[in-house]
Computed example of a mutant assay.
Amino acid sequence: MMTSTIHYGLLIALAIALVVAAFTDIRHRRIDNWLNGAIALGAPLFWWSSGLTLWPEVALQLGVAVAAFALLAGLFALKMMGGGDVKLLTALALWVRPDIFLNLLIVMALAGGVLTIVMGVWHIMRKQRDRLAIPYGVAIAFGGLWVLYFNLFPAAATAAAAQ
């Protein structure tokens, strides 16, 4: 019972952190390192509360996070992605199973496309001539919240009911 309470508490904390990341990215166009660090540091507690084994489950989580970071760091080097976005997605990879992480990436990409169109129209309507800056942390947070709501919370409820 205590483990499921901790599990739900961690999921709620992650949801709050994602909302904070989205709002800080909208407001300041950056996602703070302390927030990304807190998300990453919460993952081992989440693994424990989920009952993941060190091998192969936790190792797979770490592998996906390392692969995501390597790929996303390349996009950062090409100036296609912000550093805070890279760190946020890498931290989320620590929380989400690889198959669900793919869902997160798909939902994030779709949300990012909609966000880009909306921001582009807004930019044109305001007749701004400066470079358009997309707060992609919003799309990442949306993808993360989508996965939380449709994958992680139902899985936690099933696990709690089985106990």
Rank of each mutant, 00 (worst) to 15 (best):
G112Q: 00
I31Y: 05
L10C: 09
A21C: 10
L78F: 13
A157Y: 09
D85H: 00
G84Q: 02
A38I: 14
L102C: 08
T90R: 04
L115E: 01
P44A: 05
I12Q: 05
S50A: 14
G120C: 03
E57Q: 15
A43K: 06
V86N: 00
L35K: 11
A109V: 05
A22T: 13
G51E: 06
N103I: 15
P56H: 11
F142M: 11
Y149R: 02
G113E: 07
I100Q: 13
L71A: 15
A111W: 03
P135Y: 01
L60I: 15
G137V: 01
A111E: 03
L75E: 03
L18I: 13
I16F: 07
P154S: 07
A91H: 10
A73F: 02
D25G: 07
L92A: 09
A17P: 06
L102W: 10
A109L: 11
R131S: 10
F46D: 06
R29N: 07
E57G: 11
D85N: 00
V138H: 01
A156S: 13
G51P: 08
A13I: 09
Y8A: 12
N151H: 15
V114P: 03
L110D: 00
G51I: 08
G143K: 01
D25V: 14
I26F: 11
L94W: 03
A77H: 10
G82T: 00
G83E: 03
S49Y: 02
D99N: 13
A70Y: 08
W47G: 09
P98M: 10
G113P: 04
G42R: 04
A21M: 10
N33D: 15
M125G: 06
H7V: 10
R30T: 07
D130M: 06
L71N: 05
W34L: 12
L14S: 12
G143A: 01
T116V: 11
K79S: 14
T90A: 04
A109R: 02
G63M: 04
W146N: 07
T158H: 10
F69I: 00
M125F: 09
L104R: 09
T116M: 12
A40N: 05
K79E: 14
I117T: 13
L75K: 04
L45G: 15
K79Y: 08
V19D: 05
P44W: 07
T24K: 06
A133L: 11
L71M: 13
L104V: 13
I31S: 02
I16V: 15
A139K: 01
A111F: 01
L54M: 14
D130N: 12
M119V: 09
M81F: 06
L89K: 00
F46S: 13
D32F: 11
W122R: 14
R131K: 11
G113K: 05
I6N: 05
